[in-house]
Design a binder for these strands. Structure first.
Lengths: 209, 209
DNA sequence: CCTTTAAGACACTAATTGGTGTGTAATTAA
DNA sequence: TTAATTACACACCAATTAGTGTCTTAAAGG
C-alpha cells in the first residue's frame, strides 16, 4: 500500500515545507533576495538544508514555489468595484493606483520582490510579471480602452508612468534618503502630494486626452 | 627627499588605479553591484587585489571613489538651455525628462547604479542622491516654483512621479519581460508613447495646475 | 507489537570568498 | 652604478558557501 506522507508531531513534511516557505519570505523581507542562501534559509526555518533538496529539488525550486504560491496581485484588488462603472473606469483606476501606493508602502516583502524582478532574470519572476499584466488588462480591456477609443494606448502609457512611478517612489523611500524632488516620501504630507498628483493626472487624462 | 609616485612602464600606480576604477564600471555594467567582489575586480583589472587595499584601503574605498568620480548627473544636462526661459521652464523640464529617458536607456552602468541605490544603504550612494536633488532644485527653484507659486509643491509631486516612472520603466525594460501595461518598452513605438504621455502630463500641469 | 521507510540531525568535502605574508624586481634617490 | 623603496605576483590561510553521505529514530504499515 501507498505510504502516506509523514505527519507526526516531530517529523512532519507539510509543516517543514511551510517552515521553509515562511523562512524565504522572512529573509526576503529583511535582507532582500541577496540574502536567500540555502544555509541561511535552513537556519531560519530550523530544518536541515538537506530537506530543501528533497522537498523542492534545491533552493531554486523552493524559491520558485514561494513566488508561485504568493499571489501579491490579488491583494492589490481595486476594492470591490462598488456599483456599475459609468465613468470609463476613472474612479476605479484612481482608487486602484492609490490603494496600490499605500499597500506597497507597508508590504516590504512585495517591495523586495519588485526589486528582485529588476535585479535578475528568473522564470518564476516572469510569471509574476504576467500576472500583473493580466490584472492590468482587466482594467484596460473592459473600461479604459473602450472609453478612450483610438487614444487607448495613450492612456495606457500614462498609466504605465504612474504605476511605475509609484513603485519606484515606494522603493526609493526605503533607502539612501527618502526625499525626492524635495518631497519627503516618508511623511503623510509628502505622500498626499504624490496622491494628489496621481489624481490630477488621471483627471486630466479622462478630460482632455 | 620625497620619493615621487611610481610611474614606470611596468609598475605605475596611477595606471593601476585607473584599471581598478575601470574594472568596477565594467563589472557593474555587466553583473550589477552584486558582482563587485574583490577577487573579481582584481581579476578584471589584471592587477593583484592587494593593491586595492594599499591604494584604496579596501574594496569599499575603491567603490566609493568610483561613485564619487563618476558624475552621471552632469551628463543628464537638459541640453544647453537655448535662449531665455519665458514659459516657467515648461520646455526645459520636458526636454530634461525626455533626454533623461533616452540617456538612461543606453547607459546600463547608470541603470545599475540606480538599482544599486534601491538595493542597499551606502554613504557614497547617498551623495549620488544629494547631487540629483541639487540638480533638481536648479529647475524647481529658478523656474517652476516661481511659476506655480502656491502650487509649486504640486508640480514637484508630478515631477517626482514622472522622473521615477521613467527610471523604473527603463530598468524594467531590461529584465523579465519588457511589456508594461501592454506597452513594449523596447520598441520605438512603445517608447514614443511614454514620451507623449510625459509631454501630455507636463502640458496639462502648466495649463491647469 | 515488529518491520520498513524516510525525516532530519550531524559531519564532511569542495569551491568560493576576503584578507595577509613573502619574495622579486622595477623604479627612484643618491 | 649602487642602494633603498615599494609595486606587484604568488603564495597562503580562514571564513563562508553549496552540496552529499551517514546515522538515528520517528512514524507508517502490517
Amino acid at each position: 500500500m501507498e505510504r502516506k506522507p509523514v505527519g507526526g508531531k516531530i517529523r512532519n513534511i507539510e509543516r517543514s515545507r511551510k517552515k521553509f516557505l515562511l523562512a524565504v519570505g522572512k529573509i526576503l523581507k529583511t535582507k532582500g533576495h541577496a540574502g536567500l542562501k540555502i544555509n541561511e534559509v535552513a537556519k531560519v526555518a530550523g530544518v536541515d538544508k538537506k530537506m530543501i533538496y528533497s522537498y523542492f529539488g534545491g533552493l531554486d525550486g523552493l524559491i520558485d514555489e514561494y513566488i508561485a504560491v504568493k499571489d501579491f496581485w490579488s491583494n492589490v484588488k481595486a476594492e470591490q468595484s462598488t456599483g456599475a462603472i459609468t465613468d470609463g473606469g476613472k474612479a476605479f483606476a484612481t482608487k486602484a493606483f492609490l490603494y496600490q501606493f499605500d499597500y506597497l508602502e507597508n508590504n516590504k516583502e512585495f517591495q523586495k520582490l519588485l526589486l528582485w524582478r529588476l535585479s535578475e532574470e528568473r522564470k518564476s519572476l516572469r510569471k509574476l510579471t504576467q500576472d500583473q499584466e493580466a490584472r492590468g488588462e482587466l482594467l484596460f480591456n473592459h473600461f479604459t480602452d473602450p472609453y478612450f477609443g483610438k487614444n487607448a494606448e495613450k492612456f495606457r502609457a500614462i498609466s504605465a508612468v504612474i504605476a511605475s512611478g509609484l513603485y519606484y517612489l515606494n522603493m526609493y523611500a526605503e533607502v539612501n534618503g527618502s526625499v525626492f524632488s524635495g518631497i519627503d516620501l516618508k511623511t503623510e504630507k509628502g505622500r498626499n502630494l504624490i496622491k494628489e498628483a496621481v489624481g490630477f493626472i488621471i483627471d486630466k487624462s479622462f478630460k482632455d486626452l
